[in-house]
Nucleic acid binder design. Structure first.
Lengths: 218, 218
DNA sequence: CGATGTTGAGCGAGCGTTCAATCGTCATTT
DNA sequence: AAATGACGATTGAACGCTCGCTCAACATCG
């Protein structure tokens, strides 16, 4: 699919895909080093292996590059998640496995995820909405795994929050690397998070915890 | 304290403080609306109530404004945390209370925290280091509360991770508001998080969970 | 009238974007 | 086989504008 979101003057569809992949690859590195705003269109062109003029045959505005980058990253993350997680499994073990492979994924792609995280806000409102939908889908996947693994044990709101927690804890491994990766490897991080997830504090909960079976609107 | 980090040509110390507070107040709003990079120095000056020339009597570079803003926000958050949390308490109840007041704080200051979070990366390496130290301090506070509330029950690594989780869950309320605040109020969010924190999944943990008493380097 | 603080027009660099010129390829004509 | 021309793709010099930053002139006050 040649992102309809970003039209091009070029006719050759295969070429568009090829050139855009060059762009994305070059741009990610640059965005990682200096951020979107401090990166020049000329730099992007050079890193992509063609000239500034050519760049503008494949995009309209600089922001289009950012969109292509974010979209591509989200897409890859989503695909790898779909490939490694089977939401039809129904054991706690499979939940654990899902968390493990998700965390591993976030470790593999931490640079990309970090870039995405820091720059999506520079996208236009619509582009953000478009890209964020993929995020919702991923959280929903985690939700589904939880529901299937622990049927009937948790309120809807709890499950939703758990899914969000896991999702963010994965990203956190990347965007708080400066502190976490001094204390953990991805393996020990994963193990410890799973440990906390399963055990909780498990004591003296009487009277302190509210029912928490709420799902109302704000 | 007149941030030594950002020198000024003005002699009157009290005036510096006053003008900088004007700057910070105006800038936060602008950064929130359009982000640091898309905000003009002229806009900052106008929002602060003085001219572009005056602005540059109180800072050297545009980035100084960002530093002042981030520093001020971190400072306020840290102060409010110190005021509302007593790390000497030794009950689970006091841990809960600490989480409650921290989450409430993050709700009160979500706009500021969001700005900070999205823009710190635009600071210079040193400025980031300086500001991040405050973050470390805050996480350490949470760590201390946990240690005192649950003495001897958790490995060092677990406590550290728990503190980081709570810290991030607080921020998450702000930076994932577009999804969380459709499903929760700050009250239900807090209750549910505490619920999950205390209970865990609490079942079938045998053979799945590793010891997780690790604290090695990456 | 010095000293301190304020002003905003103006400078100049840098950047996003354009487009006339050029290249490469291949079907058509001679 | 060579010449022609049409078409799609590529190039980078050039344009115009924005924006960070300066500074000579001015205001205020003791």
């Amino acid at each position: 699919m040649t992102d309809q979101q970003v039209p091009s003057t070029i006719k050759d569809e295969a070429l568009i895909v090829k050139r855009r992949n060059q762009m994305i690859k070059g741009a990610v590195t640059l965005f990682m080093e200096k951020g979107f705003h401090k990166t020049t269109t000329r730099e992007i062109a050079k890193a992509s292996g063609f000239s500034i003029g050519t760049l503008y045959e494949y995009i309209r505005k600089k922001e289009d590059v950012l969109f292509l980058v974010c979209d591509s990253i989200y897409q890859r993350v989503k695909e790898r998640m779909e490939a490694s997680i089977d939401p039809e499994q129904t054991t706690v073990k499979s939940l654990i496995q899902a968390v493990r492979s998700y965390f591993q994924l976030m470790d593999d792609m931490q640079d990309e995820v970090l870039v995405m995280y820091q720059e999506v806000k520079s996208l236009s409102r619509e582009a953000q909405e478009y890209v964020l939908q993929k995020e919702r889908d991923m959280v929903a996947m985690l939700e589904q795994v939880i529901i299937n693994s622990l049927p009937g044990e948790y309120a809807e709101a709890e499950v939703r929050l758990m899914a969000n927690n896991i999702f963010v804890q994965g990203q956190m491994w990347g965007f708080r690397r400066w502190i976490l990766q001094r204390n953990f490897t991805i393996k020990t991080y994963t193990d410890t998070q799973i440990h906390l997830l399963l055990r909780g504090l498990g004591k003296e909960t009487e009277g302190i915890i509210q029912p928490a079976d709420n799902a109302g609107h704000a």
